[in-house]
Design a protein around this nucleic acid. Structure first.
Length: 286
DNA sequence: GACCAGGACCATT
DNA sequence: AATGGTCATGGT
């Protein structure tokens, strides 16, 4: 696949379940063990599964392989303030994609993400999967692998058991939300055909889910590309590039980004996020 | 040993 | 409406 940076995509803080191993990435998609390897020169992504596959649409959809990246990057804002980061971010992050993740896995992962570093979120998710996830078929010689635990499975756990996965005060949030999903009180599948605002309103009803986490799920799982999650990193970047580094309230930032970053604002957000985390130096007050 | 991490929530003003 | 404290844990 051309114009696809697998490393950047899997390490950019949108997904936490992929494990690096010897020039490859190992993960579980749709209950299937997958090993992805991107060839050095041409950037072709090779996929190995544990069992023969008759069709690959489930993986192509997950990776969003058919998305026209150039068309998306062309919509990034070109105003003078945006130009201060836009070209450099596209230059250094080109090939970064937004995945199309499973809503429950994405939602649960981001409930665990609050005030955690990405490396720690990955750790928590790994422990959670090993402890509560169903084992998946792996090729001979590969280490055991587990699917992300279902809401039903986690709803049957205790807060104490969840805390043993190092998630700390997030345990009761994850448990309560899992119970609402498992009971059908919230139907994640029904959010797909809703308008963004309505889907967000449903998500923030869930325990441990505020605007930021809801936006991440809307963008990374449901594909609402206009959604622009604002975390501490993005907030700093917005203050630097658009408010001369001065302190601006979160509510004003959220209002500011609406209709400013185009029809693929979520993509712009992810490029900005990855850019400042890997290359840029963002300073300024918090 | 501070300080912070892809926040949310609750109690005060 | 807008702060401030608190939550649990590990990296830097």
């Amino acid at each position: 696949m051309q114009d696809y940076d697998l490393d950047a995509t899997l390490t950019s803080g949108q997904v936490f379940g992929w494990e690096p191993r010897a020039e490859s990435w190992i993960g579980v998609v749709n209950g299937r063990w997958v090993k992805l390897t991107q060839t050095p020169r041409r950037g072709i992504i090779l996929a190995q599964t544990a069992e023969p596959q008759t069709e690959w649409s489930w993986l192509a959809d997950y990776l969003q392989a058919g998305v026209d990246l150039d068309q998306i990057l062309a919509t990034f804002p070109t105003d003078p303030q945006s130009r201060a980061w836009r070209d450099a971010a596209i230059e250094s992050c080109r090939g970064l994609r937004l995945l199309r993740q499973d809503p429950w896995e994405c939602l649960a992962s981001f409930i665990l993400s609050s005030t955690k570093q990405i490396v720690q979120i990955r750790q928590i998710v790994a422990v959670l999967r090993a402890r509560f996830g169903s084992p998946v078929v792996v090729p001979a010689g590969e280490r055991p692998a587990f699917a992300f635990p279902s809401a039903r499975r986690l709803a049957a756990a205790t807060a104490t058991e969840l805390r043993e996965c190092k998630m700390g005060f997030r345990a009761p949030y994850l448990l309560a939300t899992a119970q609402r999903i498992a009971s059908g009180q919230c139907d994640l599948a029904s959010l797909r055909q809703m308008r963004v605002a309505d889907a967000r309103a449903e998500l923030v009803k869930l325990p441990g889910v505020g605007d930021k986490i809801a936006d991440c799920v809307l963008l990374f799982a449901y594909g609402f590309r206009t959604v622009f999650p604002i975390d501490v990193w993005i907030a700093k970047a917005l203050r630097k590039y658009y408010f001369r580094g001065r302190h601006v309230r979160a509510i004003r930032l959220r209002h500011y980004v609406v209709n400013r970053f185009g029809p693929h604002a979520g993509y712009a957000q992810q490029y900005l996020f990855h850019y400042i985390r890997t290359k840029g130096r963002v300073t300024g007050d918090t």
